[in-house]
Design a protein around this nucleic acid. Sequence first.
DNA 1: TTGTAGGCGTTATCAA
DNA 2: TTGATAACGCCTACAA
Lengths: 331, 331
Amino acid sequence: MVTLRDIASRANVSVMTVSRVIKNSGYVGKETRARIASAIEEMDYRPNEIARSLVNSKTNNIMLIVPDIENMFFSEMVKGTERILREYGFQSIFVDTDGIVQNEKLFSERALSHIVDGLIFYCPRVDGEYLAKICRKIPAIVVDRKVNSEAVDQIYIDNKSGSVRAVDHLIHNGHRKIGLIEGPDNVLANLRRKAGYMTSLHKNGISERVEYIFSANFTFEDGQEACKYFLGLKDPPTAYFATNDLMALGFIQEAQENNVSIPGDFSIIGFDNISISRLISPPLTTVNNPKHRMGALAAYRLLAKLGVSVEIPEYELTNQLVIRGSVRAIP
Amino acid sequence: MVTLRDIASRANVSVMTVSRVIKNSGYVGKETRARIASAIEEMDYRPNEIARSLVNSKTNNIMLIVPDIENMFFSEMVKGTERILREYGFQSIFVDTDGIVQNEKLFSERALSHIVDGLIFYCPRVDGEYLAKICRKIPAIVVDRKVNSEAVDQIYIDNKSGSVRAVDHLIHNGHRKIGLIEGPDNVLANLRRKAGYMTSLHKNGISERVEYIFSANFTFEDGQEACKYFLGLKDPPTAYFATNDLMALGFIQEAQENNVSIPGDFSIIGFDNISISRLISPPLTTVNNPKHRMGALAAYRLLAKLGVSVEIPEYELTNQLVIRGSVRAIP
DNA sequence: TTGTAGGCGTTATCAA
DNA sequence: TTGATAACGCCTACAA
């Protein structure tokens, strides 16, 4: 490994002089600088960032704790984050928890061993108390989760209002029998979306029916299962609200395989507006979730916390209804 | 920051003794160990991995250079990689190049500043010479790209044979007029897939037609453009081979919007078998690309290069044709 | 304009 | 079983 010392001796100067030229700071004689520059060139020297980190106690690494990178909902957020972090000279250390709570603990624990300057949790499932504990120990941002603690710096959209809007839309299209396809109850976003469903129903004078609620785990296959379940009902809903797009997609797929037309027979709305949802047929009506922006905002906010001078953009994190082809008006 | 020294003085021992207990190596008296353990506990001490890295000249970080994490083709590979790396105690530093060659150079350059122990390129677009140069400087693996240099350690599937199989399938189904929808020509995988298309055509006594080849950039929108283009032809092909799934999906979408039935009017085959390709309607016939396995294999091979004792699994990296619903037999 | 000394937090080596 | 010392590669502070 080529070090400062090697360059110094090759150029007949002290290490400090070399250090000055690589950082481009302080006074260095023009002729000396040239000699050093060529030594650096010839020996293909690269500053050791680890040594720098040790001196500055700053790694320029951020850890991103992601439930599942294959899920486009997360890869889109991560894309938004990484771009900004990189722009400001930070690396992204990415870890995939497979949605397992224990892993969230494991990795955030690991982040504490000074390998990163900060931490971003994407839709974590651990209890809020644990999150708060971590956030007190290391600069962190929690995305897509609302925790009751001023220790945690969080970014979330109003999942409930988006869901109200979605279910309202179904009702305005004449539907009265509306099924819910929901995710796990340790994901707060899911709970909020379910709450929106209830709110919309109630304010429209519709009472919920337990048999109209299918609880699952956010996967495509869960959507298929949901469809099978509802098809087995004597009096199935005419419209459905799925708390994420992937389940809505699974539902549609299964419906079509059973010659049930979407939106002819069943209407459905999803949530998140992942990129494929516009690619299927019929294109899915869904609630947009500003994923890139949430990811970017997490980056900006974390950078600000780390003392980097950034201007945090004033993003509006609203969740508009994206009307496409999966809802039909009924008399 | 709590350091070894703090623990040492709190426990009335030298730093070395503390170091021994946290590494769990060497002899430490039982009673001393207990005293140190409780000091660590009370002060919430975490070893500074950066300092360790400096001593060991080993960061336990691997850089993953990815063209686009939102593209499921890559996120699936990355998932496969990260899981294995993590299992062996390595962190994944992920960078997204947005498919820009200049970024590939920038980031691999950065990797040289001792922030990572190794490097994985996913389907890089830089010239092979540059890749070879980097690979001589740092342990690296190149995935989904074939470079003519024994300096570079590479993992790839036989894109050509997979494509031959795909186009053969179209021909066996009676198609003689077959269009190609291809990606950029600085992506080697694309070139090989195109070569497979040509080979299949020729061995079946069909000569290629320039107007049957649409060159684009691997995106969904490119697939839509392709469809528009072909619909404008007086004598369009009856079947298509797209060199990736995303373009095939765009093609299908655009076709259906123009009331062109798939596979009724046009048959189409994609390549990669990304997860959505089975979710659309009709489900896409495509060539499977063992993405998780390629990602995992990259991790194993890199670890082996780094001297980690791993057993490299004997994966078969074959690319089977996955027959689904987007091809129709014609008389 | 350049150099010296000391330290960042840890570990290897040798000595006690 | 434990400790002192030097080192990893770089930087800050001060001195020349």
